[in-house]
């Protein structure tokens, strides 16, 4: 009896797992294989390429070498230069600047949207997101037009002595700064709005009894509740801003080299694929390290990073 039951049981679970396998293959496999074949495999190829030598026309070949990484660190036939470290630093600063600036703009904005009547909120949110539906090149181009020499904004800046006469506000660090905020603001507003909208205001009421000042009330009752949204926003802004090369290239007038531009250059103007691959690997490492740290922090806060990531 026991043994016959055992075999039917096995046959039964066998049929189950067959059904499972078929359903899995038909639904998950096509998309997953597509991503594996067309993204995971290519990125592994890039990692491998970073260990190859560079040929005459940018085509990499054997033998394997760490040459590309040596150059990433700044060593070349001409000796050591801190150029790449500066570029990496600038990109990190760009990423951090974008995150901090968008927080400063988005935080009150999220509260503003929530403070409006409920039927207006989706509309206001849509208004924040709408510009990001246009092409990034167009958005950046619009700022070029707005900040060019001889525009009213530039005249204003000239007259107030901020910039030299006949100069424009673009190209400049300031233009890059504005372009970054413009491009990444929606990615900060969305998760913050989600957090602010579901704020538990009873905690604020309780806090009102315990803390005297408005600042402490905010810090102890409101801020912790918006922290998950804030972290999600930082991830969504800092990662793409770290690798952004369109904004600094167009609005910075190609004067300021960023990690993104540096990588792009190795595959366009002066081909050097192993070097470019090694730089890309550096970018990936920083990206995943940042992501890992923020996920850790978010998980420790208990609520995860919300629906966004």
């Amino acid at each position: 009896m026991a043994s016959s039951l055992g075999t039917t049981e096995r046959a039964h679970s066998g049929r189950r797992s067959e059904r499972f396998a078929l359903g899995f293959v038909l639904t998950v496999a096509p998309g997953a294989l597509w991503i594996i074949l067309f993204l995971l495999a290519p990125s592994i190829l890039v990692i491998a390429m970073a260990f190859l030598s560079n040929g005459d026309y940018g085509s990499p070949h054997l033998p394997m070498t760490l040459d590309a990484f040596r150059r990433v660190l700044g060593f070349s036939v001409l000796g050591w230069s801190n150029g790449n470290l500066k570029t990496l630093w600038r990109s990190l600063v760009q990423s951090a600047t974008a995150a901090v600036a968008t927080i400063l703009v988005a935080y009150p904005l999220a509260f503003f949207i929530v403070s409006r009547r409920s039927y207006l909120r989706p509309l206001l949110l849509l208004m924040v997101i709408l510009p990001s539906w246009t092409n990034q090149v167009i958005r950046t181009y619009a700022w070029m037009e707005l900040l060019a020499p001889d525009t009213s904004l530039s005249h204003l800046a000239q007259e107030s002595g901020l910039i030299a006469p006949h100069m424009g506000l673009f190209p400049s660090d300031f233009a890059i700064f504005l372009g970054l905020i413009y491009n990444y603001l929606p990615y900060m507003v969305l998760p913050l709005y989600a957090a602010v909208e579901k704020l538990d205001w009873t905690i604020v009421e309780v806090g009102r009894d315990l803390y005297a000042s408005g600042y402490r009330l905010f810090w102890h009752t409101v801020f912790p509740q918006t922290l998950p949204g804030l972290l999600a926003g930082i991830i969504l802004v800092a990662i793409p801003a770290f690798g952004d090369f369109v904004v600094p290239q167009l609005l910075g007038g190609n004067k300021f080299l960023m990690l993104g531009n540096l990588i792009a250059n190795q595959f366009t103007s002066t081909p050097d694929w192993p070097y470019g691959a090694a730089l890309a690997l550096v970018m990936l490492c920083f990206t995943f390290a940042g992501l890992f740290v923020f996920r850790r922090v978010a998980r420790r806060l208990g609520r995860g990073e919300g629906q966004i990531l």
């Binding site: 890039v46 770290f242 690798g243 595959f267 890309a280 970018m283």
Partner: peptide, 8 residues
């Protein structure tokens, strides 16, 4: 990052 995506 889209630049890494692109070059891959």
């Amino acid at each position: 990052p889209s630049i890494v995506f692109g070059i891959s």
